[in-house]
Simulated scan of single mutants.
Amino acid sequence: MSTAIVAAAAEQPAYRRWLPVAIMWLALITVPAWFPLMGGYTALAANVLVFGLAAMGLNILLGFTGVLSFGHAAYFGLGAYGTGLMLKYVAPSTPLAMLAGILLGGLGGTLFGLLIVRRRGVYFAMCTIAFGQIFYYIAYKWNDFTGGFDGLRGFHREPIGLGALSFDITDGTRFYYFTVVVFTLAVALMSFLLRSPFGRTLRAIRENERRARFLGIPVERHIWLSFSISCFFTALAGTLYALLNNFADPLALHYSLSGFFVIMAVLGGMRSFWGPLLGAVVFVVLRDFLSSALPTEWMAFLGAIFMLSVLFFPRGMLGMLKRRGVE
Rank of each mutant, 00 (worst) to 15 (best):
A4F: 11
I5V: 09
V6C: 00
Y15A: 08
R17D: 03
P20K: 09
P20A: 10
I23Y: 11
A27C: 14
A33Y: 13
W34H: 07
P36V: 05
G40C: 08
A43M: 11
N47Q: 15
F51I: 01
L61V: 10
T65S: 14
T65D: 04
G71S: 11
Y75D: 03
G77R: 04
L78I: 03
A80T: 03
L85H: 07
A91G: 00
S93W: 07
I102K: 11
L111G: 03
G113S: 07
R120Q: 13
V122C: 01
Y123K: 03
F124N: 05
I129D: 03
F131N: 08
I134T: 08
A139H: 12
D144L: 06
F145S: 03
G147M: 09
G148P: 08
G151C: 08
H156V: 13
P159N: 08
A164Q: 14
F167W: 15
Y176R: 08
V182P: 02
T184N: 06
L185I: 13
V187K: 00
M190C: 07
S191E: 04
L193F: 14
S196H: 13
S196W: 02
R200G: 13
A204K: 10
N208E: 08
R210D: 12
R213F: 12
P218Q: 12
I223E: 06
C231E: 03
F232I: 11
L236T: 15
A242Y: 04
H254Y: 14
L257F: 09
S258E: 02
G259E: 04
I263N: 00
G269P: 03
R271E: 09
F273N: 00
P276G: 02
P276Q: 02
L277M: 07
G279E: 06
V281L: 10
V285A: 11
L286K: 04
S292I: 03
L294N: 06
W298A: 04
M299V: 05
L302G: 12
G303W: 07
I305M: 15
S309M: 14
P314N: 10
P314V: 07
M317N: 02
G319K: 10
L321W: 15
